[in-house]
Design a protein around this nucleic acid. Sequence first.
DNA 1: GTCTATACTGAGATAGAC
DNA 2: GTCTATCTCAGTATAGAC
Lengths: 214, 214
Amino acid sequence: MPGSTDRKKNRLTAEERRAAIVEAAVRLFAEKGFRGTTTRELAAAVGVSEPVLYQHFATKGDLYTAIIEAICRHRDRDRDGLLELARHAEDDEAFFSRLAELILEWYDEQPEVVRLLLFSALEEHDLKDRFVETQVAMLYEILTEYLERRMDKGVFRRMDPYLAARAFTGMVSHQGMAKVVFGIDDLRGSRQEIARKIADIFVNGIRSHGAQGA
Amino acid sequence: MPGSTDRKKNRLTAEERRAAIVEAAVRLFAEKGFRGTTTRELAAAVGVSEPVLYQHFATKGDLYTAIIEAICRHRDRDRDGLLELARHAEDDEAFFSRLAELILEWYDEQPEVVRLLLFSALEEHDLKDRFVETQVAMLYEILTEYLERRMDKGVFRRMDPYLAARAFTGMVSHQGMAKVVFGIDDLRGSRQEIARKIADIFVNGIRSHGAQGA
DNA sequence: GTCTATACTGAGATAGAC
DNA sequence: GTCTATCTCAGTATAGAC
């Protein structure tokens, strides 16, 4: 049986090999970009010869595209979780704090995705728009909806909810960018504390006057 | 005189040619990155042969470095203006609003610099840190100082001023990034209006309770 | 292994100042 | 016309996708 559980096998099934290639490619493309990564390095990182890469992906570009697609599909699942979080949230402070934490966590735990996203946007990849949509713009949507609801309830001041959503996203994600892309990592406190403080500024900033306090 | 004002001369002085090369290189490097730009394209864009490039810059890398250096030096002058603005500001709303406007303006008017900054950070250029320092971190510094002063006066709540500075920077610059890098340009209103609204959220978010209103 | 593209070069041509 | 800074032709070596 080809896909058996043998430890020391060099020969993997097509599926396994493909996965191994994708894994190495994510690392390399994220580190050096599409143009900065050579097929030779790629093959070396996987531990195979270049022709093997081309048995799984017709071109270097196809491999890159496959990676982005996979990330987008994976994130589509996150979306449901976030929607759930937004729909069931009662305490604004808690909601924005938790959301900020999740965003910061994303930057900490998936820096490769962040870098791939930026590279693909800068290099104008075909899937750039879909990539941006699933990774960033989706947040705008969820947040806008939440903010509208709370404005309707009179808890938040009347304002452009989309702009407010963008402002919050920026407050948080900029910190992730600074860390992952620019290497600026001098914020004091835990991720949770940072998230809470940012959420605090934001919620106070949009709350209706006279509706302050816990 | 070699640098005369003749119209139709192909032959430029060294200085003029150098400037022409830099100008074309900024455009190309910003568009396609360092690796994505070939010396052939570069030469074609300038309207000369490749060897001419090498008479002015020993390597392609030297040209790239020279560009970044020039941008950094140029921006050092902006810094003084911002410091001035921060020191003489009296009205918080006006100050943050104006600052936001200047940041958004920077993204609108110098998208090449933004893209170069990101490319250089992602591609780990030697001058990346200096570049980030002059273009972004400088803002943190100026804002932190301002916020500290206002907290001392009791106008703003006591909080980590550096984090607040970062949060404000993020609120604003994220919008510029979204536009320039991700191509998301669906915010309603003029730059000035957007700046005012963002500043409004921020200032309300950090203001001492009981100190609201104009 | 093959074939193309790319960073870089040496030797010479030429425009333009005097 | 002479001289020199400015520019071109025709490459080489290397590296990269396939």
